[in-house]
């Protein structure tokens, strides 16, 4: 089975029927249908019905489908789960996760629905969005709170308010939070997804932020407009040189293995285990993005 990339997670407002219906056409890894902040309070039910019918009937061409539900604190989130879990098609993004207990509460509610509808308990996956100081400090326990979790995500707009600051081009104010979330995700072996960048007209600034979060180790980013897709996919796809280098490392290592040599060196440098692991990861990603096939073709000609 190939790995699931989560470079791009496109926000789709749940009550916008045109976007809900057309979301499948964009080259993103995940679609995140929103019932929370992008839906007005008096439209919550309406949006829930829209997602329920659309997710049931529309073919989203194999993309990962995620629904951001409302908070469970006032009963709205539970209603969202009641309608969406039985579809058996979507992962649930829990908003404003402050502690491991939030995840456990949600998981319990989901498990009951799964039992009620004779679904395999644990089959519904979850993501937790961290959007407060408590959430950031509890990131480790949150990330480890459930086997259902496929990732944790940073939600910066609420977080900066909680931190008594605001978002800046450098992202300095999010340094600690980003690092914390990344550490927690890696510790739990799940994805780390960065927050949205909301200035659609500053593509340079967006690109700089994408490059930074990739360097930090994030798997990808939530996006609010399809115009942002290409830049993320470009930044997160390995370069041709990286792929060729990785290819050389892995094939040299395999040859060495055959003749019983444990440690190899390439171009005068020792190639140790972490380098091989990284090379394998690059090839894995390049396989999913289709780059490997393209490069192999070029070299076969």
């Amino acid at each position: 089975m190939s790995i699931r990339l989560r470079r791009t997670m496109l926000f789709v407002p749940g009550n916008n029927t045109s976007m809900v219906v057309n979301a499948g056409i964009y080259p993103v890894d995940s679609l995140m249908f929103d019932l929370e902040d992008s839906v007005a309070l008096d439209q919550k039910e309406n949006a829930r019905f829209v997602l329920h019918e659309a997710l049931r009937t529309i073919n989203y061409q194999g993309k990962e489908l995620i629904v951001r539900i409302n908070s469970l604190s006032d009963g709205m989130g539970q209603m969202d789960l009641d309608y969406l879990i039985p579809l058996g098609k979507v992962a649930i993004r829990l908003p404003k996760t402050d502690s491991a207990q939030d995840v456990i509460d949600c998981e319990e509610y989901i498990a009951n629905i799964e039992k009620k509808y004779n679904m395999e308990v644990g089959s519904t996956k979850m993501m937790a969005a961290i959007e407060s100081a408590n959430g950031v400090l509890n990131a480790y326990s949150i990330a480890h709170a459930s086997k259902r979790l496929i990732g944790i995500a940073l939600g910066a707009e609420d977080l900066v308010t909680d931190l008594h600051t605001k978002r800046s081009p450098s992202g300095l104010e999010l340094n600690f939070s980003r690092s914390m979330i990344l550490m927690a995700a890696r510790s739990a072996g799940i994805s780390a997804i960065d927050t949205v960048y909301s200035n659609l007209n500053n593509m340079e600034g967006f690109k700089a932020e994408v490059e930074m979060i990739k360097l930090l180790g994030f798997d990808g980013k939530s996006i609010i407009n399809p115009r942002q897709i290409q830049i993320i996919n470009d930044v997160f796809s390995p370069t041709e040189k990286e792929i060729l280098d990785a290819f050389e490392i892995v094939s040299t290592m395999e040859k060495a293995k055959k003749i019983g040599i444990g440690v190899i060196s390439l171009h005068g440098k020792m190639v140790d285990k972490p380098i091989i692991e990284r090379a394998k990861k690059v090839l894995e990603i390049a396989t999913v993005t289709g780059q490997l096939a393209r490069i192999e073709d070029n070299y076969n000609e």
Partner: peptide, 8 residues
Amino acid sequence: LDCIIIAR
């Protein structure tokens, strides 16, 4: 689309 008509 039909699914939206039904949802609404």
